[in-house]
Write a protein that binds this DNA or RNA. Sequence first.
RNA 1: GGCGCGGUAGCAAAGUGGUAAUGCUGUGGACUGCAACUCCGCCAUCGUCGGUUCGAUUCCGACCCGCGCCUCCA
Length: 431
Amino acid sequence: MYVCGPTVYNRVHIGNARPVVVFDTLFRVLKSIYPQVAYARNITDIDDKIMTAAAELNEDISILSARYASAYFEDMEALNNLEPTIVPYATAHIPEMIVMIETLISKGHAYVSDGHVLFAVESMPDYGQLSGRSLEDMLAGARVEVAEYKRFAGDFVLWKPSSDNEPGWSSPWGRGRPGWHLECSVMAKKHLGETIDIHAGGQDLIFPHHENEIAQSCCAHDGKAMANIWMHNGFINIDGEKMSKSLGNFRLVRDLLGHFPGEVLRFVILSAHYRAEQNFNKTLLDSAWRSLDTLYGYLRGCSYVEPDLNTSSLGYQALLDDLNTPVAISELHRLAKEMHLAKGPNRQTLQSELLGLAGILGLLQNDPEEWFTLARNKGDLPAEEVEALIAERKTAKDSKDYAGADGIRQQLLDAGIVLEDSREGTTWRRA
RNA sequence: GGCGCGGUAGCAAAGUGGUAAUGCUGUGGACUGCAACUCCGCCAUCGUCGGUUCGAUUCCGACCCGCGCCUCCA
């Protein structure tokens, strides 16, 4: 499986996280079926946007891209995403890119023009198939001025020249850098082969990115399909509008993580079907958090059992059916409640089944006790102080001093602590 | 203009030709010293209008509304 990764020139937003979470879940599903799954997610570390950002900071592009690549890994890990099996970097594949360009030129699919190498889309009869566009459609909708070095308006760059102060690599066509689409074709081929099983990414990549990848790979490999299956996730909107810089409505993963556990973000993403558009807002995050609280609440106080995936369960079967995560999540609730009401050994069975399904979703990965009690912010009341006050309240309660007990409870509530009394004693959680 | 997606309860979100999962919220009750948690219950006829059908939210058509891509973009 190949998933198009980020261009590392700034912090990623929640929209960038959606394909990662969705296809990480698919990765987990695949691993539950196949002994070996090769999953590549690239890092695009050479691109004009990176060059612009580096120039603004007067910084070397390799330093800037390394910094944002590691920030990316950090953010993705916080969302419980597993490491892909392969993380290829574009700049580590320049020689292979040059080879592919040479192949395309020799087969008559690419031409050199004014220092550029361009892919001739007219040389490929099926061009546009993935996105359902004809060449005429593309010309009709063209909103950009056609660069004069192009033979045909739809032709795209495989290699472009770099000026002396721009990063570049020497090539048969002079010093330059690769076009964006080429990188993925080359990395997919090198690490996964000429025809891969699944190629995935955001919906917006269908055209032109994936269309162009297909053109490059297919033509370089004598017509072999690039991927057997293409999967595209829908967009995340903010208050009904697309996230964009001009609207200033970007939600960086990093910033959201300052207010919500990573698992809450993951839960939100998985609570909608991956192909559907999703509208992101605070209400959604809050209600996801409460849902997770409910699930962890059932688990709290249970002794640990090994997760055990029930492959015939409704939840797992739903995932096999085009990754129906909303149904899988609803099964999480069903299992948790059933477990809660179950008696005897049945309870452990249900618990391990619950954890097994949650594991495929990458949810419920925290220790239930810590989920409720771990301090999240600097000013949070330390657990020891909470415990001390609870003990104090118990003394008051035991002597029927309910006013005193309620005073302490209120004091804790003001500090963001909610108490829950039961026969076994008092537990607490951070609101 | 071309291509495409969607409109299901207050919010979110599955789903099916035979009267609609699940979560959050709200609400009635039980539990509790009071709460919180938990438990039992309640809250939708599926954008509009036609058609096909014994029967449609689910199929077909028209219309209305929202959105995306066609340019870098997850």
